[in-house]
């Protein structure tokens, strides 16, 4: 079996290393070996102290995001066969690094929660009644409007691709703004008015300069850049209406 050299960025503050450093590992691989498989190999065979997140290994749980040769990727969905020469693995960019490849997701979650990412509708919750059987009606065409934006797995790759988030972590960022837009576009939702103040902020849609790399790296083709920039149109409309209404 051929081997490939992996350079992994290590950060072990407890061992007294207050700056990250690179460590090389040689990994046997074949056509099916993913970056995640390689990390598991390191942990199980070479160095049990290597820390990283992973879970589903089928690109749906969003745990295993890392920088592979400077580009944000899901480890389970990137294969060693696709890389010439050594492969550099680092923690997702623009986040505080806690240990090795583990980043602090706290701010990401705060941003998600800030946009009220749930269906807001005044009609009575059927949870109250024993016999409630009525769903909302929503045609496939109505669903089509937001479906793509509902595919976000919260992996955070888009934040690592976004220099604006890197420069200002207060920027709500691609995933959160996409989620807000997803609910704003949902024909069942009535919460747009409540969400717009967040979108309208400087740290809302207007921090985006349409670099577009977020959509490039999105492993689920959600196209957050489109959502954010559609959000700008909505935000502009909202602010104009606000001016006319006084």
């Amino acid at each position: 079996m051929t081997t490939k050299r992996l350079s992994i960025q290590r950060y072990l503050p407890e061992q007294g290393n207050n700056t990250p450093y690179w460590q090389d590992f040689d990994i046997p691989f074949d056509d099916s070996t993913s970056v995640l498989d390689a990390l598991n190999y390191v942990k199980e065979e070479l160095d049990g102290s290597l820390s990283y997140r992973w879970s589903c290994r089928m690109a749906i749980c969003g745990s295993c995001g890392v920088m592979v040769n400077n580009t944000p990727k899901l480890g389970c969905q990137s294969f060693l066969r696709d890389y010439e020469g050594p492969v550099k693995i680092a923690p997702l960019a623009h986040f505080p690094v806690e240990k090795d490849l583990i980043i602090d997701m706290g701010l990401f979650l705060d941003h998600l929660a800030a946009v009220q990412p749930y269906l807001i509708n005044d009609s009575r919750l059927i949870n109250d009644s024993e016999e409630g059987t009525e769903t909302f009606k929503q045609t496939p065409a109505q669903m089509e409007k937001y479906k793509q934006f509902a595919g976000c797995i919260n992996c955070g790759l888009c934040y690592s691709a976004c220099p604006q988030f890197g420069l200002n972590p207060e920027f709500l960022g691609p995933a959160a703004l996409t989620l807000a837009h997803r609910y704003n576009l949902d024909s069942r939702d009535q919460g747009k008015k409540q969400r717009m103040p967040q979108m309208n902020r400087e740290e809302g849609v207007w921090s985006c300069t349409f670099v577009g790399f977020c959509s490039e790296v999105c492993p689920k083709n959600v196209d957050p850049a489109a959502a954010v920039n559609q959000g700008k149109v909505e935000s502009a409309k909202d602010m104009l209406i606000g001016i006319f209404k006084g």
Partner: peptide, 23 residues
Amino acid sequence: AHRELVQMERWGCPWSRKPDGSV
């Protein structure tokens, strides 16, 4: 079971739909 799936719909779950908008 049905009541719960309806509840999920009321919370925004994007269940696949028929052309008339029902589940």
